[in-house]
């Protein structure tokens, strides 16, 4: 067999395969074109790519599906770049939030157009033109009207309530789509032992919280966790247990429950699956412990030690 060639960089890419919300190409009312812009990512504080629709009506998030060793055939052409871009509608409040929070520290009501400004990302002021910006600011800020002028001040309580609704809606969607929140990647070499109904509400809540946190600063993410009455786990990585590990550690957790029962004073071992509140919290403590133990012997731990 001939020798394999090294990969050369793809410098000439000028084409992108995209799956876009229909509204991206809907320009009936406006004559300006939609545009990709760079804005400050609220979670990383670094630049990320977004899209503003025609007439700055709607905001879209850009996510790239990217796996190594992929290319496209499009019609009668090859496109070496095998990424698939998703353009999905995005709530602009996530991007406005950090600016409001910063100015909110001063405790004053301010005109929002003086708050949502960023020398590094000039396009951010365009966020305020979006249909879902000004009209929805009351979710995250107090409003005051003086004459024709509107003033706003960041409000944590409102924000938390708003985010909680987001989490709840996300939980509902995760359930509706039967998205596996407890085990991560399903692997053909593993047979799923748990059915979706076996996942605890907390698994869903944590998963949804993690998703929403992709749009929040770390502080806000922690505050939301609090608001959801979810105890913080010891390591930030524990919020996202590695898929296959989790499954391994689930069994001992079950056993842990039973032992607890067995050791209890009445000595009656009920086969019932129901747990008392105390046992529940005990099982939870156990669970975290077990996970840390098992992760010790997992490839994950090895990878980290490298």
């Amino acid at each position: 067999m001939a020798t394999k060639k090294k990969q050369t960089p793809n410098l000439q890419n000028d084409s992108w395969v995209v799956i876009a919300a229909d509204s991206v190409i809907d320009t009936q009312k406006n004559d300006s074109d939609p545009a990709f812009v760079r804005l400050r990512n609220p979670s990383t504080d670094a630049a990320s790519l977004y899209m503003l629709s025609s007439g700055d009506v709607q905001l879209f998030e850009v996510k790239a599906f990217e796996e190594d060793f992929h290319s496209w055939f499009v019609g009668q052409t090859v496109q070496r770049d095998g990424r698939l871009l998703f353009l999905t509608p995005m709530d602009p409040l996530y991007l406005i939030l950090p600016y409001l929070m910063t100015s909110g520290k001063e405790g004053k009501f301010q005109p929002v157009d003086q708050v949502v400004m960023d020398e590094e990302f000039p396009a951010c002021s365009r966020l305020l033109s979006l249909t879902r910006s000004l009209a929805f600011l009351h979710h995250i800020a107090e409003e005051k009207e003086v004459g024709k002028l509107k003033f706003h001040r960041y409000n944590q309580e409102k924000t938390m309530n708003w985010l909680k609704k987001k989490v709840e809606r996300t939980v509902a969607m995760l359930k509706a789509r039967s998205i596996s929140v407890g085990e991560g990647v399903k692997s053909i070499t593993y047979i799923r032992v748990k059915s979706d109904s076996d996942y605890h509400e907390e698994d869903y809540l944590r998963y949804a919280h993690g998703l929403i946190s992709q749009y929040l600063s770390e502080d806000l993410s922690k505050a939301l966790l609090d608001h959801l009455q979810l105890p913080e786990l010891t390591s930030p990585k524990e919020t996202e247990p590695p898929s296959k590990k989790r499954k391994l550690s689930d069994k001992p957790v079950e056993a842990g429950e039973d032992y607890t029962k067995f050791n209890s004073a009445d000595f009656v071992r009920k086969p019932s699956k129901k747990m008392t509140a105390a046992q529940k919290s005990l099982a939870k403590v156990d669970k975290t412990g077990m996970k840390t133990m098992s992760s010790f012997f997992s490839p994950k731990a090895k990878a980290e030690n490298k």
């Binding site: 979670s43 670094a46 990320s48 790519l49 850009v62 990217e66 993690g210 998703l211 946190s213 996202e240």
Partner: peptide, 25 residues
Amino acid sequence: SAGGNDQNPTHRFFTERRLKSLDRL
């Protein structure tokens, strides 16, 4: 994530689906 923020790693929903943010086209 792209920003290199270790405190807020990309959620596994995205890593499992090989989805990531972009900073340029």
